[in-house]
Design a protein around this nucleic acid. Structure first.
Lengths: 341, 341
DNA sequence: AGTGGCATCCAAAGCGCTTTCAATTGTGTA
DNA sequence: TACACAATTGAAAGCGCTTTGGATGCCACT
C-alpha cells in the first residue's frame, strides 16, 4: 500500500493525502478525517526511504559503533545508547548504527554522513586533536560531540563532564586524608577524558608539591582484567601507592580483586576513588566495600544529547552549544586516612 | 556531488557510470577505470536513500531496542549487538535501531519493517506464544529470531540455545551431588528462555521424584538487585534450598552478595550454577568463588545471526533455517556436595 | 555487399514521496 | 451582476538512483 494506491482508493490526489497526513492547514477537516480513517483501515505507512529522498529528512540520528573481532564490547556504549533511545522514542526517531573498526572511525563517520541516511550525527570516544572535528565542520549536518578534544579549538557543539575537576576534587580528598603516594588507573592515553583526568590529578598534587610518578600511571582499555593487571603492578612497586584513582568502576572491579588477592583491605591499606558512570551492573554501593566515586550518569548524558540533536533537526532550537556537567563526589567506605607506616 | 553531476563531468550517461560502479560487465574496462578515478577525486558517494528507493535494498538490518525511562539498559543487548556488528562491518552493512517501549514492540517492529529502511529484521526477547511471529510471516522480509517462542509452531527461522537441556544438565549435576532442595532464579516469566529453563529443571527433578516448589522459583528482570532480593527470599525459607539455578551471571552477582551477607559459603553451604552468556564484565572465573556455569556466547550468536541475515539478503544462501546450539556445562567451585545437616 | 553478433553506451521510465504552481469552487463586496 | 478573495484540491516536477529497451559502431562471416 503506497500513497498512490491510497489516494486512488480515496478518490483524492496524492497531494491532498500527503498534506492531510503531514498536518498542513489547507486541507478540509472532513477530508483529513477521511484520510486518517483510511490510513487506519489499510495500515498504510509512508516509505521512509522515499520520504527521505523527497525531504532530505528521515528522523534518524547516526552513530559509529567501534567493533572488531576480539574487540570487547563496551558497557559504556550500551548505557549511552539506552539514554539516546529513551529520548528518541519520544520523537519517533531511530538510529543508524555503523559498525566500524576502531581504526577506521573517521572514514566510517564520513560514510554515514554522506550516505543520506541520517539527519544528525553523534560522535563519541573523542581523542586529543581529534581529526573528526574538521570533517564534521565541513559537513553541514548537525552533530553533537560527547566529550571534547583536548588540543582542538573548542568551537564545536559538545556535552562533556568536567573530568579535570572531578579528578582534581577526588585527589584533594585523598590528600586531605594524608595520602602522598598516588596512582592513576586511566583509560587509553589518546582519549580526551583520560588526558583531562590525568591533568586534574597532576594539578591537585602539584599544589602540595607532589608529582605523579610514571610507574604509577596506567593507560589501558577499561576492562576489569586491565584493572586487575594494573593494580597488581602498583602493588608490587617498592613504594607502594596508598591512594588509587580509577577512571571507571569497571577498572575498579578488577583492581579490587587484586587488592583482595594481596590480602589488603580496601579503605584501610588502600584508598580508592573511581569514576562512576552509573552503570546498572556496577553500583558503587554494592561493592563489598562501597566505593567512593565521582559520579555522572552516562545515560542522562545520552538523553540530553538526543534532545539537542533531535531538537536541532526539528528546528525546535536554540540549544546551548556547549555544556559542561559537574560531577558529584560521593564519599563511601573505600577511602580512609593514610595507614600509619 | 551526485550521479548526474559525476556523469556530466565524465561526459558519460548516468547509466554507464552507475553500471561501472556496480560492476556490471557491459562497460569498457578503460571507461570503468576512468569512472573509478573520478570517484576517487571527487569523493562521490551514492545516496543510500535513493539507492534504497530504486533497488529496494539498503544494506541494513533492523532491530528493536526496548527502552523507557527507568528501563534499565540490558547488558545482554549490548553484547549481542557487538556480535552483529562484528559481522556487519565485514559486509558494509549497518543497523537501524528502533527504540521502543517494551509494551510496544509489535508495533515498533511493524513500523520498522514497513518503513522501507531495512532489508532484514532481527528479533529478540521472544515470549511464549509471541504475537510477532504472525506479523513477521506476513511480511515477506527476511528475519531471524533469536530464541524461540514456546507454544508456537516452530516453523520460523531461528537460532536458539538448548535452554531446557542446559538447565536439565545443570540440575542433574546438582542432584548427583546429593542436593534435594532446589531453587530457580529465573528471568521474566513470559520470556521463552525462562519457560524452557524451568522445564529443564522440573524434568530433571521429576526423574528423582522431586518437584520445584512455587516459593522456590523467582521470575524477575535480570539485574543484580533482583538477584539479591530473590536470594534473600530463598535464604529465609524454613526449608532453605541448598542448590540454586540461576538464569544469568547478572542475577548470580546479586545472589552471591546475599549469600555472603548471610555469612554462608558459596560452594559449601549453597551450591549455585548460573547460565553464562560470556559477558565481558561477568567472567565466572573471576568471581571470588569461581562459578559453575552453563555457557553459550551471546556474541557468537550475534555473529551467526548476522551471517544468516546478511547472507539471505545477498542471496548467498542457503542457510539452515533453524539452529539449536548446545551449551557447555563447566564445573567450577560454586558447586559442591550437599552439606551434612 | 549483406547479415548477424558483439561490445558499448544512452534515453527514459520508474521507485514513493513532497512541494510548487495552478485550477476550481464558493463567498463576500462593490 | 461582476469581481476580488479565501478555501480546497490537483497536476506535475523533482529527490538520486537503477534498469529496461533500445541505439550505435564495428567486426567476422556467408
Amino acid at each position: 500500500m503506497n500513497l498512490k494506491q491510497l489516494s486512488e482508493l480515496l478518490g483524492l490526489s496524492q497531494t491532498t493525502v500527503s498534506r492531510a497526513l503531514n498536518g498542513y492547514p489547507e486541507v478540509n477537516e472532513a477530508t483529513r478525517e477521511r484520510v486518517l480513517q483510511a490510513v487506519k483501515e489499510t495500515g498504510y505507512r509512508p516509505n521512509k526511504a522515499a520520504q527521505r529522498l523527497a525531504t532530505g529528512k528521515a528522523g534518524s540520528i547516526g552513530l559509529v559503533m567501534p567493533t572488531a573481532p576480539g574487540h570487547q564490547s563496551d558497557v559504556h556504549f550500551g548505557e549511552f545508547l539506552a539514554g539516546l533511545g529513551e529520548e528518541a522514542v519520544r520523537h519517533d526517531f531511530h538510529f543508524v548504527i555503523m559498525p566500524a573498526d576502531p581504526d577506521d572511525e573517521v572514514a566510517a563517520l564520513r560514510r554515514l554522513a554522506i550516505s543520506g541516511n541520517v539527519d544528525a550525527l553523534f560522535v563519541a570516544y573523542m581523542r586529543g586533536h581529534d581529526p573528526r572535528l574538521a570533517m564534521l565542520k565541513s559537513l553541514s549536518m548537525p552533530y553533537v560531540v560527547h566529550g571534547r578534544s583536548f588540543g582542538s579549538e573548542p568551537d564545536y557543539p559538545y556535552l562533556d563532564i568536567d573530568n579535570e575537576g572531578a579528578f582534581y576534587d577526588a585527589t584533594r580528598l585523598l590528600l586531605q586524608l594524608g595520602h602522598t603516594r598516588f596512582a592513576l588507573m586511566n583509560g587509553p592515553m589518546h582519549l580526551d577524558f583520560a588526558i583531562r583526568r590525568k591533568n586534574g590529578v597532576i594539578s591537585a598534587l602539584a599544589e602540595r608539591g607532589l608529582t605523579l610518578e610514571d610507574g604509577c600511571t596506567s593507560h589501558a582499555l577499561m576492562t576489569d582484567e586491565q584493572g586487575l593487571l594494573a593494580m597488581e603492578h602498583f602493588l608490587q612497586l617498592p613504594e607502594r601507592p596508598t591512594a588509587i584513582l580509577c577512571s571507571s568502576t569497571v577498572l575498579a572491579l578488577g583492581a579490587i580483586r587484586a587488592v583482595n588477592q594481596a590480602g589488603l583491605r580496601l579503605g584501610e591499606d588502600i584508598s580508592l576513588i573511581a569514576h562512576d558512570d552509573v552503570l546498572p551492573l556496577l553500583k558503587p554501593e554494592s561493592f563489598s566495600v562501597p566505593l567512593t566515586t565521582t559520579r555522572s550518569s552516562l545515560r542522562a548524558a545520552g538523553v540530553r544529547i538526543a534532545q539537542r540533536l533531535i531538537g536541532t533537526v526539528k528546528q525546535a532550537g536554540p540549544f546551548p552549544d556547549q555544556e559542561l556537567w559537574k560531577t558529584e563526589l560521593i564519599v563511601r567506605a573505600s577511602t580512609g586516612p593514610v595507614p600509619q607506616a
